[in-house]
Design a binder for these strands. Structure first.
Lengths: 214, 214
DNA sequence: AAAAGGCTCCCTGTAAACAGGGTGTTACCG
DNA sequence: CGGTAACACCCTGTTTACAGGGAGCCTTTT
């Protein structure tokens, strides 16, 4: 019986080793290549077209060629190859981009070994596999995108967002705007949920995108 | 005895009112103009060159023409006019730019009324006035700029910075990198002090500048 | 061999952020 | 007129960030 040919891309050696040791036990899987960036995988696939790779497992967060770019590249140039993303990153945008680009599976890095194996099996059978947490993020993204929030922020919200991104604390912003600290906390909460981000860092990035700072 | 002619620029009406009411008592000061952005002040100065304005008090954080731009413009085109910046913003870069552009004074918005009056008096006498907190920021900036930190960050520091900017918490980053939470906290502290920022928002902005995210 | 810098880890605190709920007021819109 | 959204505020919690220390190990440079 033919073994399934697998390629793994991850710039974290420790993780790569762990993944390999899990798959090494299984007699049905053969690891053809490991790489610490997406570009090398793409190159390999282009050169060895006759290799009939079955699955590429990739991290998102890599130099040179991110997992998102790699998935997009594979689906465009080698559509018969399945892709599984294993990443810590699970922001709305990444998940949306990957599903749009027809990724075959997506599990978080803190997933159990069993879930990983289940994901691989499922995908090799031809089905898709997404962890619950990924589904949650996706649904959340759908929700907040119904009304595209680009300009759904009120004037006041933008004002507060700007000050937040300018490194002021809630209390300082309250003083500046002559409002209660509670009010600013409410704005902060609303902004985080409206924009679908997790914390100050996300708010700051959004503020930059909107041109409120920098 | 001739009154000192003063212009005030601030986009926060409440603050403008407060400032005016403080100065209105004093018989030696005359408020010629108030504006909610820097552009209008610049325009006024260009048109009324014979007006012999003594002092422009300005916020930094304004639409159209920031206080930094306004100060630069005034010092270039109307060098006889003194400038006093009264702002909440006191990041390293702003302070450095303003001092380079020969601003006459800089006090934080939470300064006491007495300090404001002292600053104005000092400046009108021909001296400079900077609050202690502003001096601190300036010195801090000098320190960290001795070796320009653009690339003084180690590989590991950049890695952590990137993950911070990607909205991961300290604990999550620790898990991802197989390090202790304490280690990541140390990195976070070092980054904040190295980069001369105040919090997560500052770190995030720096990460974007370095191209680590987005 | 000492110095210096990078990396890792730990401790004690306080302040702030984050999460989830809620109230009441305007003011505009269909 | 009722619905909706923005705005300001409040409460109770838990978690995280931030500030200030210190310390040991390892490698490269002086």
């Amino acid at each position: 019986m033919r073994k399934y040919k697998i390629i793994i891309a991850d710039d974290h050696k420790m993780f790569l080793d762990g993944l390999m040791s899990i798959l090494a036990h299984k007699e049905t899987y053969e690891i053809i290549l490991t790489a610490n960036n997406g570009k090398n995988v793409a190159k390999y696939l282009d050169i060895n077209k006759d290799d009939e790779i079955d699955l590429v497992i990739t991290d998102i967060n890599m130099p040179e060629f991110s997992g998102i770019e790699l998935n997009s590249y594979i689906k465009k140039n080698h559509p018969s190859i399945k892709t599984l993303v294993v990443s810590m990153l699970h922001d709305t945008k990444s998940v949306q981009t990957l599903t749009k680009d027809n990724v075959d599976g997506y599990i978080p890095k803190n997933a159990e070994k069993d879930e990983l194996l289940l994901a691989i099996e499922t995908i090799l059978k031809g089905d898709k596999y997404f962890s619950q947490s990924i589904k949650d993020v996706y649904l959340k993204g759908m929700f907040s995108n119904e009304k595209n929030m680009e300009d759904s922020l009120s004037k006041r919200e933008k004002e507060v967002l700007k000050l937040i991104a300018q490194e002021f604390t809630t209390q300082e912003i309250a003083d500046e705007l002559f409002l209660s600290k509670h009010t600013i906390e409410s704005y902060r909460k609303n902004l985080i949920s409206k924009l679908g981000v997790r914390n100050l860092a996300g708010l700051t990035k959004y503020a930059i995108k909107l041109g409120l700072v920098e």
